[in-house]
Simulated assay, not measured.
Amino acid sequence: MIVAACPGQGSQTPGFLAPWLELEGVPELLEAYSDAAEVDLIAHGTTSDADTIRDTRIAQPLIVAASMIAMTQLVQRAQRTADGVAGHSVGELAALNSAGVISSEDAMRLVGIRGRAMADAAAQTPTGMSAVLGGEADAVLALLEELDLTPANYNVAGQIVAAGTLENLAGLAESAPRGVRVMPLQVAGAFHTSYMAPAVETLRAAVAEVEYEEPTHTLWSNRDGAVVTDGQDALDRIVTQVSSPVRWDLCMESFLAAGITGFIEVAPAGALVGLAKRGMRGIPAVAVKTPEDLDAAAELLNGAAQ
C-alpha cells in the first residue's frame, strides 16, 4: 500500500512554485486557483519573500495549490493513484480533493476562506507555535499545562508542537528541561487551539455550501488517524480540525496497521518525509519537492503495482 500525503503550513519556501510553472497547463491552472482563493499564487509562489508567504492568508492557498498540482502530475506520470491519502493540517483540503470528495475549485475557495479566517483569529491575540523536540511525552505535556500552552500537533514520538501566547512560548524556551529543544515555527498564530474558535464558524458556513462525493479511495483523518468513508464526515472534520490538535502520530500508526509499503509526500515536501523516517522506519519514502522528483515517486507507485 502506497500512501500519498499533503503537507501543512510552514512547508512553503520562497520561489518554490517556480519550477512547477514550467509544466504545460500549470500557469493556467494556478490562475484559476488564484481566482478561487483570492490570492495571487503565481506572484507569491515565485517572487514573494519568506515574510510575505508566512502570512496565513497567503501560505495556506499556496500549499494546497502546490499539493494538488503535484498530485495531479504524479498521477499522470505514474498512470495510477496512490492507494490512500492523508493531509497534515491544511493539507487535508488537498487530500480531500485527491480522494474525490471535493473539487479543486472548492478546495481553493475553502482554503482562501480558511486562511483569512485563521489570520483574523490570530490577529486578536499575539500567539504562535513552537516544536518541542525530545523529552518524555508525559513530562512535556505536564510542562505545557503548567505554562498554559496547548499541544497543537502530535507529530511523532519525541516531537510535540506547543501553541499559545508568545509570552508563554518564551517561558517554555527558558524552562525547557535538559535534552529538550524548543524551536519556534514560522506560523502566525496558535493554530489548532481554542484561539482559532472564531474561524471555525466562518469555515462551517462555507463548507455548508460545498457539494461533495464519497471518498474514492482510503482517506485518513489527521484528527485521530481514522479512515473516513463518508464525504460529509470528511468536511465536518475539516471544520473542527481548525481548533483541535493534529494527530499525525496516529495517522502514521494507521498507515502501518494498514500495511503501508511506501510513502510519498507531495509539494511543498520535506517535513512529512522526515517524520516518516522516524515514525515508520524502513518504509521507502519520496519527497516530491520539484517536478524532478516525480519520476522517483512514480517508480515507487508503479513498483507497488507490480
Rank of each mutant, 00 (worst) to 15 (best):
D249V: 12
R181Q: 10
W248K: 01
G189M: 00
L219F: 08
L256A: 15
G231H: 13
G270A: 05
S175L: 14
P184F: 07
G262R: 00
Q186G: 14
W248F: 08
P184Q: 08
E174F: 10
R247N: 01
T218V: 14
L250Q: 15
F263P: 01
P245A: 03
D224K: 00
A234M: 10
N168Q: 04
V246A: 01
W220M: 09
S221G: 02
T240C: 11
A258Y: 00
Q186M: 14
A258M: 01
V246W: 06
G189H: 03
G262N: 06
E167T: 08
Q241V: 01
E211V: 13
T165P: 10
E209A: 10
A205T: 05
A258F: 03
V182A: 05
A234W: 12
D224H: 06
V200Y: 12
T193A: 05
A226L: 13
W248Y: 07
V187C: 06
V228S: 04
E265R: 02
C251F: 07
T193W: 02
A267W: 04
W248V: 01
V187S: 05
L172M: 03
E253T: 13
L235M: 07
E201H: 07
T216C: 10
Y195S: 10
F191C: 00
A173T: 03
G231E: 09
S221E: 02
V246C: 02
F255A: 01
Q241R: 06
A173D: 02
I238P: 09
E174N: 13
I264E: 03
D249T: 09
T218K: 15
G171Y: 08
D233A: 15
S254M: 09
A176F: 03
V273G: 09
A190Y: 13
E213P: 09
G179A: 07
E201G: 08
A271S: 13
S175P: 10
W248D: 02
A257G: 06
V266Y: 07
M183C: 12
R204A: 15
Q241A: 11
A199I: 04
I264L: 09
L166R: 14
T165R: 00
Q232N: 15
V227T: 15
L219R: 10
A271R: 05
Y212W: 15
R181V: 11
T216M: 12
A205D: 11
V182R: 06
A197L: 14
H217Y: 14
T193R: 06
S244F: 07
Y212P: 09
D233E: 15
G171C: 07
T218M: 15
S244H: 14
Q186V: 11
D224L: 03
A190P: 05
C251L: 04
G270I: 00
Y212D: 12
V239T: 07
N168V: 03
A173E: 01
Q232W: 14
Y212H: 15
P198S: 08
V266H: 13
M252F: 11
R204C: 12
R223Q: 12
L272P: 04
A234K: 07
V266W: 03
T202L: 11
L219V: 10
S175I: 10
V239Q: 02
V242L: 08
M183D: 12
I260P: 02
V180D: 08
V182F: 04
G262K: 00
V200D: 14
V207Y: 13
E167I: 01
